[in-house]
C-alpha cells in the first residue's frame, strides 16, 4: 500500500489510530482512526467519535505514521518459529492417570 497523497496545495491533518479501554481491568483495544492537527485535538475528537455512549474510560491516540507493523507478505516465515514448538502448550504433556491439580 502506498502512502496516500493529499490533493495539491493542501495539507491533510495527520491520521491517528485510536485505542480505548472499555472498562477498568481491561487493556486498551484498537477502535479506529481519525484525522486531527495535534495530539490534544486527536484525543478530544476520539472522545466524540468513539465514546459517545460511554464505550470507554481511557483513550490513547497514536499518530499512524509512528506505528511499525509486521508485513503480511513475510507472515509465514516471520511467525514460523512459533509453529513447531507444540511443547509450549500444556496439552503437549502426557500425565499419569489420577494425578490432580496439575
Amino acid at each position: 500500500m502506498s502512502e496516500p497523497t493529499a490533493p495539491e496545495g493542501r495539507r491533510e491533518w495527520p491520521l491517528w489510530e485510536v485505542f480505548v479501554r472499555s472498562k477498568r481491568g481491561l487493556s486498551h483495544g484498537h477502535v479506529g482512526s481519525l484525522h486531527a492537527a495535534d495530539p490534544e485535538m486527536a484525543l478530544r475528537m476520539a472522545r466524540d467519535v468513539y465514546t459517545r455512549r460511554q464505550e470507554g474510560v481511557s483513550i490513547w491516540v497514536v499518530e499512524a505514521a509512528s506505528i511499525t507493523a509486521s508485513s503480511p507478505d513475510e507472515k509465514d516465515p516471520f511467525f514460523d518459529p512459533a509453529a513447531d514448538k507444540v511443547y509450549r502448550h500444556p496439552t503437549f504433556y502426557d500425565l499419569p492417570e489420577g494425578v490432580e491439580h496439575l
Binding site: P4, A6, L34
Partner: peptide, 27 residues
C-alpha cells in the same frame, strides 16, 4: 441532535475504513 451527531460519527467510521484502502480523505 444526538441522532444527527451519530450520522456524522458513522460517516467518520466509514471514511476511516475507506482510507485503509489507500485513498486520502481529502480526495
Amino acid at each position: 441532535m444526538a441522532k444527527v451527531q451519530d450520522e456524522a460519527g458513522h460517516g467518520l467510521y466509514l471514511y476511516s475504513a475507506t482510507e485503509t484502502l489507500g485513498v486520502s480523505r481529502d480526495d
